[in-house]
C-alpha cells in the first residue's frame, strides 16, 4: 500500500507534521489502515530526499512540519487518478486509495473508478483469452484452471464493486453531500485517536 503517495496526497491540503499525517490518513480511510509511525517518519525522510516535500521548521512542541513541493503534488495527483493492477492483494490498496481520494477536494474520483474498471476488464479479458486456449480435458491443466478461475471471479467481483461505487458516488453527489475534509486539528502527540 502506498504510504508514500498517501502522505503526498494529504499534504496537498496543507502543512502537516508526521504524527498528524498518520491521524489524517487513518481517519480518511475509515480507520481501516493503520500505519506504524516509524514508517511515516522514514517515508517522510525519503520523500524529502527525493524533493517531493520539504520541511518548514518545527512547531512549539518540536515537531517538524512538512509541505509538498510542486513535483510532489504532481505525483499525488497521478497516484490518485491512476488504476492499479488487479489482484486480491491490490484490492485493499484500491479501497484505501478510493477512501482517501473522496476526502481530497478536487480529486477526480470518477476518473479513478473509470480507469480501474477499464484496467480490470482488460485483465479479465486477458485471463479469459488464456483459458480459451487451454485443453479442458487435460488433467495437467486442472491446477492452473482452478487458479485462473479464482482470478476471473475476483476480477468479476471487483468490476461489480466498482460499478456499485460509481452508483454510490453519483447518489452522494446528487444529494449534495460532500465528503471532502480539510485538515483536522492534530491530537496531542503520542496519543492515538480512539475509535468512536
Amino acid at each position: 500500500m502506498s504510504v508514500r503517495a498517501s502522505i503526498l496526497a494529504v499534504l496537498t491540503l496543507g502543512e502537516c507534521h508526521g504524527y498528524q499525517l498518520r491521524q489524517e490518513i487513518e481517519s480518511r480511510t475509515g480507520g481501516s489502515w493503520q500505519i506504524n509511525i516509524g514508517q511515516i517518519y522514514s517515508t517522510l525522510e525519503r520523500l524529502e530526499r527525493d524533493g517531493l516535500l520539504e520541511s518548514v521548521g518545527s512547531n512549539g512542541q518540536g515537531q517538524t512540519r512538512y509541505r509538498v513541493t510542486p513535483s510532489g503534488s504532481v505525483e499525488a495527483e497521478e497516484w490518485l487518478t491512476t488504476a492499479i493492477p488487479s489482484s486480491p492483494e491490490a484490492r485493499n490498496e484500491l479501497a484505501m486509495k478510493l477512501a482517501l481520494a473522496v476526502t481530497i477536494p478536487g480529486c477526480d474520483v470518477e476518473k479513478l473508478v473509470h480507469a480501474q474498471r477499464v484496467q480490470t476488464m482488460r485483465n479479465l479479458q486477458a485471463l479469459t483469452a488464456t483459458k480459451r486456449d487451454v485443453d479442458q480435458n487435460d488433467p495437467a491443466e486442472l491446477p492452473w484452471l482452478l487458479v485462473a478461475d479464482l482470478n476471473i471471479f475476483n476480477c468479476e467481483a471487483e468490476l461489480r464493486w466498482l460499478e456499485h461505487i460509481e452508483g454510490t458516488l453519483a447518489r452522494t453527489a446528487a444529494r449534495g453531500l460532500n465528503p471532502n475534509q480539510t485538515l483536522s486539528e492534530p491530537a496531542k502527540r503520542g496519543r492515538p485517536t480512539k475509535a468512536n
Binding site: S87, V118, R122, N123, A129, N151
Partner: peptide, 15 residues
Amino acid sequence: VEEISNTITPEQFGA
C-alpha cells in the same frame, strides 16, 4: 464511449 481490447498478457498482472 469506450473500446476495451485485450492488450495485456496475464503475466503482466501475475495470473
